[in-house]
Simulated scan of single mutants.
Amino acid sequence: MSPAVDDDHVPAARPPSLTERTIEAVREGIRNGSFVPGELYSVYRLADELGVSRSPVRDALLRLAETGMVAFERNRGFRVVLPGARELTEIIAVRLALEVPAAERAAVRATDADRSALHDEHSAMQAAVLAGDESAFMLHDQRLHGLLLDLAGNAHAARIIENLRDATRLVGASTIKKSRSLEDVYREHRPILDAIDDSDPVAAGSAMRRHLESTGRLLLREAPDGNGTSLWADLIEPVADERGG
């Protein structure tokens, strides 16, 4: 006989697998600078440090390799890959393809509670600006974008964007302090939230596009193999022209 189900309790979420835990550990190492692009790292040593077998580590790295974040060297180990101009341009193209329509859908679907959650993250970004805390700022920036993707109802897109954001962190990781300030980035998000408050999908999509294109152009300035001007013209501008006309 099956045990009774308590309707007052929601089943606990499935705990992350060893592979998922390893993926998150590597991504966190990329975020905090523990893994340096170009350096060779041992799969065996990583497994020992994480206290897991080599199998989930290999599985995790294979999945990260699919995103372009790491590359294997046969019988030697793996390296964290520094995105070049083409990779960065392609990342921005994917983000535009996913996040612009997500912002449009969020403007239509957002409830008062959703808008409140978005504004809470935006306020937390402002608090981080005042504190000069870049790490906290980037955390709340990521959460705000995640909320917008959640509103669009596409969990797979949210995971893709999270991986892509981690990849761009490797290129000066962010454009903060090099090309724009925390305050600048904070202000770029205001038109997006204003449009969602007004339930205006066209304005929300346009504001998101401006924000991502600004980010993309500044990231390309930091690319190790050129500024990617021609790539931007080939991959980004035609899409913008089509949407505009």
Rank of each mutant, 00 (worst) to 15 (best):
A158C: 04
A158N: 11
A158P: 07
R159T: 04
I160K: 05
I160L: 13
I160T: 15
I160Q: 14
I161R: 08
I161T: 14
I161S: 15
N163L: 03
N163D: 15
L164K: 02
L164P: 08
L164V: 06
L164I: 06
R165N: 15
R165G: 13
R165Y: 12
D166Q: 12
D166V: 15
D166S: 14
A167R: 09
A167V: 13
A167L: 11
A167G: 10
T168F: 04
R169W: 11
R169F: 09
L170A: 09
L170T: 08
L170E: 07
L170V: 07
V171N: 06
V171R: 01
V171C: 11
G172V: 00
G172W: 00
G172P: 00
G172M: 01
G172A: 01
A173F: 07
A173E: 13
A173P: 12
S174F: 01
S174D: 04
I176S: 08
K177E: 12
K177P: 02
K177Y: 02
K177C: 02
K177L: 04
K178P: 02
K178S: 15
S179D: 13
R180G: 01
R180A: 04
R180V: 02
R180C: 07
R180T: 00
S181R: 07
S181M: 11
S181V: 03
L182R: 00
L182S: 03
E183P: 03
E183Y: 06
E183R: 06
E183K: 03
D184C: 08
Y186H: 13
Y186I: 00
Y186D: 06
R187E: 08
R187Q: 13
R187D: 13
E188L: 14
H189P: 01
R190G: 14
P191E: 03
I192D: 03
I192H: 00
I192V: 10
I192T: 05
I192W: 01
I192S: 04
L193A: 06
L193P: 08
L193V: 01
D194E: 12
A195S: 02
A195F: 00
A195W: 00
D197A: 15
D198S: 15
D198R: 13
D198Q: 08
S199A: 15
S199L: 12
S199M: 12
S199Y: 13
D200T: 11
D200K: 08
P201W: 06
V202K: 09
V202Y: 06
A203I: 05
A203Q: 04
A203L: 13
A204C: 12
A204I: 05
G205M: 03
S206N: 14
S206M: 09
S206R: 15
A207E: 10
